[in-house]
Every structure is written in structure tokens, then in C-alpha cells.
Design a protein around this nucleic acid. Sequence first.
DNA 1: TCCTAGATAGACCGTTCGGTCTATCGACCA
DNA 2: TGGTCGATAGACCGAACGGTCTATCTAGGA
Lengths: 195, 195
Amino acid sequence: MTTRAVPGPRERLLEAAKELTYAQGVGVGVDALLKSANVARRSLYEHFGGKDGLIAEVLRLTAAEDEAAYEQTMRAAGDDPRERLLAVFDWLGEVVAAPDFRGCRYLGAELALADPDHPAHAVIRGYREHLHELFERELRALGHPQPAGAADQLVLLIDGVLAVGAIRPDSRPAAAARRLAEHTVGDRRLSTGGS
Amino acid sequence: MTTRAVPGPRERLLEAAKELTYAQGVGVGVDALLKSANVARRSLYEHFGGKDGLIAEVLRLTAAEDEAAYEQTMRAAGDDPRERLLAVFDWLGEVVAAPDFRGCRYLGAELALADPDHPAHAVIRGYREHLHELFERELRALGHPQPAGAADQLVLLIDGVLAVGAIRPDSRPAAAARRLAEHTVGDRRLSTGGS
DNA sequence: TCCTAGATAGACCGTTCGGTCTATCGACCA
DNA sequence: TGGTCGATAGACCGAACGGTCTATCTAGGA
């Protein structure tokens, strides 16, 4: 049974941890997670082996969701790779402006988990690589001369938006980043084969 | 006596906290701080009122140091505002490449301290504003048409460098950001009064 | 010389931490 | 009907948490 009519303890725990580890940081207590999920203490250790396992699994889950959100945003922006890439920054503007926005979940976990062997770090790196490949693919379709380097720049701009948004959400960082992203992806003439 | 020959408990505590809160995050225990600083438990509460007060004071201290580092970097780059601004990104390249680099201290604290009333948040915002004003001043000297907006972009690029550097220090994010910063500050012709 | 102020060590407080344990409950299946 | 398995509640563990306390020591000034 991989599907069930009503969410089981595992699903409830993941959902509660997804919200609490974002709102409070990965330092939330196990008790708070169990209480919020209405799950027995033992279930956590049965399903995830411990708090660290739960955190890593939550990041895996949200990474898949966030990757899908990026892809959906680009899909909805049409067929032009340039428009698809820039649409990401318009969408980020909404993300950052949301009242419960509290910065990038992955960067928060990366900085909070001092242990370099924590399983979350590998998940975070994988998420970043996925985004990088996503952008690089579009840049290749655009005929960009340096798709890998340009993808580096786009990822950096996204990090900047999420970081600035965490501290000064009112400063509209996504708009500032979009202007730089327009420069990164190149102007419209470039898509016909510039130098 | 504001100066003393040998660092007193307050100075030792600040120094130890500066290192430990960066290496381990602001979640470090009070015991670890006291042991590292070789300071009596009571001294912490006498001087800083508690852990939160110590953290805020550490951020105030490092903010002053970091602001001075930015200014020194720009001063050493000469008189041309354009070169002074771009030199910041060359310097950031060294910062990120340092073996003990672990991301931006301020962003880490911002994301880790869930309590919006924590005194550290005000310190962090003040630090950001100081940097913004520093850049805006140079951009005005450059004759940039939108100094405030361009300063927003530079701060965003710095955040991006520090964020990417925390996760993939080997990807040379400062070099990617510098190329974008060159676009932000404008090319050389602009300093003579372009559109 | 005595007094005071600051620093020390460290016991102690109640709470919370992550994790392990036993015992019970309830649904499903043979 | 009896057995099994997943989930439950919750006691319990040692350790660490942030913070308060007393008592002792020591350097500086009157």
C-alpha cells in the first residue's frame, strides 16, 4: 500500500516538519514536531531513524516540490527560453512578498547544521545542481555562448533574491535581480546567434 | 578604564563567541562559550544580560569589523569609484575561498533566530543599510543614474556570492558576480555621463 | 590596613533536548 | 477467534539547555 485514504503518521510527520522546520528553523524540538503532527514518539524513529533522518527527508520532499514549481513557472511562461528564464524572477517576487516568507529553507539548513556529515547537506547540493541543470538547458536552447557560467549567475541571483528577501522583503529584490538576469541571458538579438 | 593591558572577561567572551557562533551557529550552548573563553558563568550575565545580549553584541562588533573591511578594500583599490566597487568582489572571492568560510554570519543568524523581537535582527538590518549607503555613495560619485537601485543590485550580488559560497565554494561565485556587477555599475563610458 | 568591586568556581534550578523503553490499543487477515 | 503488525501513549534515560545562586579569591584605592 503506497497510497492511503487518510494521511498516516509518516505523512503527517513530514507535513508538520515541513512547516515547523521552515517557520522555526531546523532547530525545532522533536516534541514540538510530534505534537504538531499528532504522532507517537516511536513512529518518528520507526520511519526516519531519528530527527536527522526526518530533516533530510523533509528537504528531499520540498526539493521535489520546489523543483516542480520552477518547472511549472517556466512551462507557464511559454516556449521562448528567454521568457521562461525571466519568468522565474517574476515568480520569485511573489514568493518573497508572501507574508510567511522566511528566506531559503535550504540555505537556512545549510548554515544551521554545523556537522558536515549531516545527510541534509547532500540533499541541498543535489537540489542546487538540479536547478543549475534546469537553467543550463534553457540557456543552451537559447544558444547562449556560456550556458554553464550563465546558469551559475542565475543561481547566484536567485540566492541573492532569497537572502535579501529574508531581511528586507519590502525592497523588491526580485525586480533588481530580474534586470541583472536579463543581462545574463542576453538581449533578444542574441537568440538569433550573436557572438 | 576602557582599555586594559590584558583582555578582560568581556573581551575574551566576545572573541570566543565571535568564533563559535560562526563555526557552530548561534545555537551554540552557553557552556561551550564560557569554556572556550575561560570565563565564569556569572560574567556573561553581568556583562551582556544573557545569551541573546551576547549574540547581539557579537554581531555589532563583527558588523563594525566587516564594514571596516569593505571600506579598506575600497580604499586600497584607488580613487576610481568603479574600480573601488568591483574590488569588493575580488576580495569576496578570497573570503569565500578561505578554508573556514561557512557563509554569511548575519544571514545565518537571521534565519536561525525565529523570534522577530530578538535584538540581533535590528543589528543585522543596520549592517545591511550601512553597506547599501556605502555603495550608493560610490555610485553617486560615479554619476550613476540610479544609485539606490544599483546599490540594491550590488548588495543582492554580495548575498548571492556568500550564499553560493556556503554551499559550493569551489564554483567561484565571486567571479560570476563580478561580471554582473560590472554591468550594474555601468561601463567606463558611462562615468562621463551616458544616458 | 581595610574595604570594595570584579572576577572566579561551581553547585543548583527547572526545563528541554534527542532517544529508548514498555504496555496497550485497534485494524486487518487467516 | 486468535494472531500479527502498526500505531498509540507516555514513562523514562542521561545530557544539555539558559539562568540564578553562594562563596571565595584578588587587585586597586583610600
